[in-house]
Amino acid sequence: MGVDFDMTFFLVRRMAGFAATLFIAALVIFLLLDLLPGDPARFILGINATPEAVAALRTQMGLDAPAHERFLAWVGGMLVGDFGLSTTQRLPVAELIAERMAVTLPLSLIAMVVSVVVGLPIGILAAMRRGKATDTALMVLAQTGVAIPNFWFGMLLTLVFAVTLRWLPTGGFIPWDEDAGAAMRGMILPGLALALPQASILARVMRTALVDVTEQDFIRTARAKGMTKSEAIWRHGVRNALLPVLTILGLQFAYLIAGTIIVENVFYLPGLGRLIFTAISERDLVLVRGATIVLVVVTTATMLVVDLAYAFVDPRLKGREA
């Protein structure tokens, strides 16, 4: 029973931490946005608007209430799933965020899948050929992959595959329900652009992890039993190297959800990053804080899952969090 108690205690503590993180994050977001210079109403109406028109719009947007009331109203609303109305578009923020998630989530997943499918085999191959020319070549490739700024790489991809070969669109997004095939085609190049550095990192992590594992005793034992180095790596090494790889994957997913903004810009995709970017320049603060908190929830939840996974895989870590 002791183990179960430990686990329950660990879970409760971890969940409390999760909730505390989110609450503080919400407070930080709200305060930061409240400090922003620039009047949302003035932005909408532009330079020729009369002061009365601006004042009328401010009232309409609910900007006149005191800060603490607005904060409580916001947090209270979110608890029941109400993120408020966007001030510029007059639409529910939750709906606007969901629309963008339909781009950002699949895009992040595609990038993850590509980076795993490309990165892991490269890492394994390099580890098997450790010290040989193949290893060096692959690692040079991986180094370069990390080093190329992804907006630059995205543009090169577009020039080759969209402008010259015309195999794929230069960007844009067709909604899934309109034409799922076209939507998918539009995700390939941005997915590749996002995957390049991630795949390179994965390859390096996988190689390092494998090389470490091969130096450990059980691999030596396996080899003593007559396995070749490659067989030993396959049978025992890869599985043992997966833990660090899983950690990296968790981090990468959290990063991808928010980090796609640059690639979204290159491929004019309506993702979450660009939503926040435009909303803040239009001073649509209700939308900005809603979208930001969603990002924070996703990132924090991903980290939580990684930690929990760790705890289950390696129960020793429960006492002190990973």
Partner: peptide, 10 residues
Amino acid sequence: EDSVNAQKAL
């Protein structure tokens, strides 16, 4: 009075 037209003055 409560118009939010940007060019009301015109």
